[in-house]
């Protein structure tokens, strides 16, 4: 069990970045759905903001991928 963790190689940081952006995107999605439910009239604006913010949140993963050796 002990040597197993030492043998973890590869892109751990990409996994961590993906985890972070997944949490970020899911929070954005949750709040966007909530906001649309609260104010259906603003659905269009909320969708735009949500798409932009989700793109920014997931962008971190790509930086992590390209920083891989």
């Amino acid at each position: 069990m002990t040597p197993m963790f030492a043998e973890v190689t590869g892109s751990l940081h990409v996994g961590l970045a993906a985890l972070g952006s997944a949490i970020g995107v899911s929070l954005i999605g949750m709040k966007a759905a909530e906001a649309t439910g609260r104010n259906p009239g603003a659905a269009g604006q909320i969708r735009n903001i949500a798409i932009i913010l989700a793109a920014l949140a997931e962008g971190i993963t790509f930086f992590a991928i390209y920083l891989t050796k």
């Binding site: 793109a55 997931e58 962008g59 993963t61 790509f62 930086f63 991928i65 390209y66």
Partner: peptide, 9 residues
């Protein structure tokens, strides 16, 4: 940089 990486990725 982020625009091009996002689309390509």
């Amino acid at each position: 940089v982020s625009l091009s990486f996002r689309l390509f990725g």
